[in-house]
Design a protein around this nucleic acid. Structure first.
Lengths: 245, 245
DNA sequence: CTCCTTAATAGTCACGTTGACTATAAAGCC
DNA sequence: GGCTTTATAGTCAACGTGACTATTAAGGAG
């Protein structure tokens, strides 16, 4: 920042800005992309659904606030939540985005494996997994945030190993493929997908002992874990192809 | 945002957050990537160089503030600055990033063609184009912001038409290639680069009349303008290849 | 127990893209 | 008038990809 502010600037002289975080928490459930929503208990937008989130504490970074809120809303311990994939999306600062006062919100995207329904505790009292397709309309500008978040994760699947964040610690390639198909809304060819994933070093690694997941229909699938890589080279492009952050 | 805040919340009761924008403005000059820096005239970091930026006005969005600051610092009219490529990078919110008070800063990245040296006017009195390689150390956490910005534009060159933002309205393919080589710090094969760019519909379009830029050494090059496309399909991947936002 | 269905996995093949090169054209320079 | 420099055209082999076919191994219905 420069010193645009006038000499003798007093931080308390301006109408203060409030800073919040908003979270777009995604999971794949029953082959559909779901997002975590909370029901608002106060005006404005009382009774409407919104993205979970909240104010930054006085000495807390936005990321710390996001992780804290995520733990609260999902009912997970902070310990577990610390492992979840959390990524800053962007910041929303329209002067009129909150009718009460000037609120600047830093939005985060989180990807989690299929978790149990959020247990009512604290804010999570009215939290629920909702299919993305029936999320709108949300309070504030949260429809915009949610659309941006969906676009971002779709694009990131192409050139990062992000998809494994949707999966439990051990997963089959079929489950990983379902993540792609669900987020992108397309069907992929199974042998080609498999060839591509296995050809990318560090994307997934076979679980030692080569166990297989039995119990389903069909031939049991081999189990894999997320590998050490974070970027995909070359990228795994979606069939048609338009994208963008 | 949710209603984490206590009932009866008074916006003025908390220590207020200040919200600023910081700008990483890049240009390509003499085959080197340059960034616009300003010299600080006040403590903290008096005399140090920093990214241009400033506080949000009371009813101004972060993007509007960034565009305003950009116009001020570059000495361009706001009209011209309105056309420049400006993109939100991310938000920096560490509680200790500014020793004076709690400042949350939304960082933006701008790409501009080679402009004249900033004319001293307002804050731009001490603004200067500096080669990226000799920018550090900067005030506050601006080294981090600058590194993030450089990484982001490098990645975006791969799958967007962003590179044309560094070029004047009409440019040669050689100049466009220089942008890639300068940002990525690699050398590209000229015929292959040309083939790739021309094969991507909407990336560039030939200037009607097929004028050529004469005056340089060697065969005069055909002139092109930025096309209508914004995404690159397929992407133009850099030689080795690691990337990321 | 046996066929049928389902899903995982192996393998094939043609096509398009890419990286590495070679060749030619058209300007400025000494 | 050669020499250098840059733009542009073209070639070729290797590789990644999309579209398919084939085989294996489980559960389920009769």
């Amino acid at each position: 920042m420069s010193d645009t502010r006038p000499a003798g600037y007093d931080p308390y002289a301006f109408e203060p800005f409030a800073v919040t975080v908003d979270l777009a928490v995604f999971t794949v459930r029953e082959s559909r992309l779901h997002v975590l929503l909370v029901e608002r208990g106060q005006d404005p937008y009382r009774g409407a659904w919104a993205l979970p989130g909240g104010f930054l504490l006085p000495r807390e970074s936005a990321e710390a606030a996001a992780r804290r809120e995520l733990a609260e809303e999902t009912g997970l311990t902070e310990q577990t939540a610390a492992d979840l994939h959390l990524e800053q999306l962007r910041t929303y600062s329209d002067p009129d985005r909150d009718p009460r006062m000037r609120v600047v919100s830093v939005a985060y995207t989180a990807l989690v494996p299929d978790l149990p329904e959020p247990r009512g505790g604290g804010d999570a009292a009215h939290a629920r997994w909702t299919p993305l397709s029936s999320a709108a309309p949300l309070a504030f500008d949260h429809d915009t945030i949610l659309a941006d978040a969906h676009g971002r994760i779709g694009a990131k699947l192409e050139y990062t190993c992000l998809a494994t964040a949707f999966c439990p610690r051990e997963f089959t390639l079929g489950e990983l493929q379902q993540v792609y198909e669900t987020v992108w809304g397309v069907e992929l060819d199974r042998p080609n997908f498999r060839r591509k994933v296995l050809a990318t070093p560090g994307f997934v690694e076979a679980v030692e002992g080569e166990p297989r997941r039995t119990g389903g229909r069909g031939k049991p699938a081999a189990l894999y874990r997320a590998g050490a890589a974070s970027a995909l080279h070359p990228p795994l492009l979606r069939p048609e192809g338009r994208q963008q952050t």
